[in-house]
Design a protein around this nucleic acid. Structure first.
Lengths: 348, 348
DNA sequence: AGGTACGGTGGGAGCGCTCCCAGCTGTGAT
DNA sequence: ATCACAGCTGGGAGCGCTCCCACCGTACCT
């Protein structure tokens, strides 16, 4: 008689209590059956299950969340100023992995895009307002206050990617250094003598790692890392273009490029074309990420593939561990590094 | 003393009751202030607001949801077998639009990927289990039972794209017919005499519309729609390749292609290259979607841009209307069609 | 026979809100 | 002075669960 409420579905839906009445047992017993507690006799369990089936009972998760003081949900937080990253398949893959791994749980996935500081504040409120059991953070910057905030309120969290070499928060990352190294080794192995690199913004740890991998491979080949062969950009296509111009200017003799992202490689490719340099004949190229861009370039771009979807899955697994083991903060924080793989195409 | 609970944050957080005590008012009054009810005197409001600030009170949304019988959340449902679509920026853009529009509300965004029929069932359970106030459905197939299920349980829902010309459920779609038509008109306007098209799967309404647009433009130019100039594919790159081969086989004299998606255009482009046909000199091309693929093609692909992000925003607006007006089912269901825009690049 | 143990069970006491009704106050009409 | 009627306000009664404690009966011990 309360008038039509905002939420049409659900009213009139059977409750735990009704199931109990129908099965001729107490509320507690039904709850135990629903939650799979072993301390229920088979006979009782069967009776309850039948009542559940007959009534078409579905537990009210909101009530459960309130009573049990948990949310049955985790948040995936995406800082959206990173539009460039967002457009990449990277996020799709992460989301797919997260979704897949979560499907086996009965946790919900909450998606939170953060555009402004105001929204970040709002997020903080949400998080402390009992809405989620844990948080997945994608592509946080080194100076992002969120991880520490979460730490403070004891909210389980997992990062995709480290903020620095000494990351304290649990994370899942891919082997950027190793991937970059194998890319450059490949280039050198193909007989290239003057391998340049276009790096990401060096205040990002991921960019540092990829540069580190480049340097390691160069040194392993008994060569020196020459400043003239290193140009840093910002992971954008335009950045790739201008870095390539600088490189060509400084070292017109270069015969290979390792770009720390496919998109930058695409930009570089354009500049090479403008300068009449053929790929791979004059200049061999390798990118990083193995995104759609790589496959669609002409010629298709050799690239370092990260197991992005697997990263999503791993993040969830780690998060679940964290949620489970909340009590013993003593145990060391799980940190996972996933291998990468060089996908060879015609550009090298 | 209840032992460490699963959820670390939140315990010990101030409640409505404590705020009321501090402000020296009743629970009801605090609730009214929090929810912006006008029936509170300014003095009282100020006192409450101060108490809220002092205590750092944040409402427990779970409790609110239980008491008010709503969820303060909407679900974005994505059928994930559509991996191909998922990788496209399409979803990113929809999500961004949805997120942006939702940010002004205090509704949460729940992301649900559906892989299997089992998961679809699970979703149905969720939906009826009071977890969301409404549902956004992306790229549903004509035979998907979900929209009707939602209709039945009176759950507000909005589709992105129609299932057929006579869609009954509220939807937001882009003007596929008009977009295709303008693309083909453009081709014809550039002096092309033999314009072919690569369509999507014709059991999808969106593919039908784009073909319809093609036909309309051809007829408007006083020509006939020749079967030999129409090849249907499945929106994939490989599909684009084989369709292009068939086309070339049937009508080696063609001098323009309208592909119903950029990805198929990319596939077609490869085949053209293999056959030594230059773009745009021998064959002009236009795609649909204006995705990253289009920009990265060589030459960059002219394409029909859809306002995808705006679609996401519009979907939310429509959904909110639906949620609001749940009572009067008599009012007609909102249906929105967004315009498209031809983005000209070097391929035409 | 009396005691102990324990698997199994019922139901009270909340979780933190919203809703709503009764009551309280002050104002203006009578 | 009395009454009516607003505008505000307090707090009881839930929302549908989980948690936990008391209790039951039976089986097994001494």
């Amino acid at each position: 008689m309360a008038g039509t409420r905002r939420h049409g579905a659900g009213r009139g839906r059977p409750t735990l209590e009704e199931v109990a009445a129908r099965a001729g047992v107490g509320r507690g017993t039904v709850s135990r059956v629903i939650n799979g507690s072993p301390r229920v006799s088979d006979r009782t369990r069967t009776a309850v299950e039948q009542a559940v089936a007959e009534l078409g009972y579905v537990p009210n998760r909101v009530a459960r969340a309130l009573a049990a003081n948990r949310a049955d949900a985790v948040a995936l937080v995406i800082p959206e100023p990173e539009t460039r990253l967002f457009a990449e398949p990277y996020f799709s893959d992460i989301i797919r992995g997260v979704g897949a791994e979560l499907a086996d749980t009965d946790l919900q996935l909450l998606l939170t895009l953060i555009r402004t500081p105001k929204e970040r504040q709002r997020l903080a409120d949400y998080l402390s307002a009992h809405r989620v059991d844990g948080v997945l953070l994608v592509s946080v910057h080194a100076d992002d206050p969120l991880p520490d905030l979460l730490e403070r309120i004891e909210m389980p969290a997992v990062l995709s990617g480290r903020r620095s070499a000494h990351e304290t928060v649990p994370y899942v990352d891919s082997d950027n250094t190793g991937g970059a190294q194998s890319a450059v080794e490949h280039l050198i192995g193909r007989g290239r003598s003057t391998v340049a690199t276009i790096t990401g913004p060096l205040d990002m740890y991921v960019a540092q790692c990829r540069l580190e991998g480049y340097s390691a491979a160069v040194r392993a080949a008994g060569r020196e890392v020459e400043p003239g062969l290193v140009a840093s950009a910002d992971f954008t296509e335009e950045g790739g273009r201008s870095a390539m111009r600088r490189l060509l200017d400084q070292r017109p003799d270069l015969d290979a490029i390792f770009a720390a992202s496919d998109v930058m490689a695409a930009g570089a490719r354009q500049v090479l074309r403008e300068h009449g340099r053929g790929v791979p004949d004059d200049v061999a190229m390798v990118g990083f990420e193995d995104s759609a861009v790589a496959r669609h370039m002409d010629p298709p771009l050799t690239s370092v593939r990260q197991a992005t979807e697997e990263m999503g899955r791993a993040m969830v697994r780690v998060l679940l561990e964290e949620i489970e083991g909340l009590s013993d903060r003593t145990s060391k924080r799980p940190q996972v590094v996933l291998p990468t793989q060089l996908v060879r195409r015609e550009s090298s």
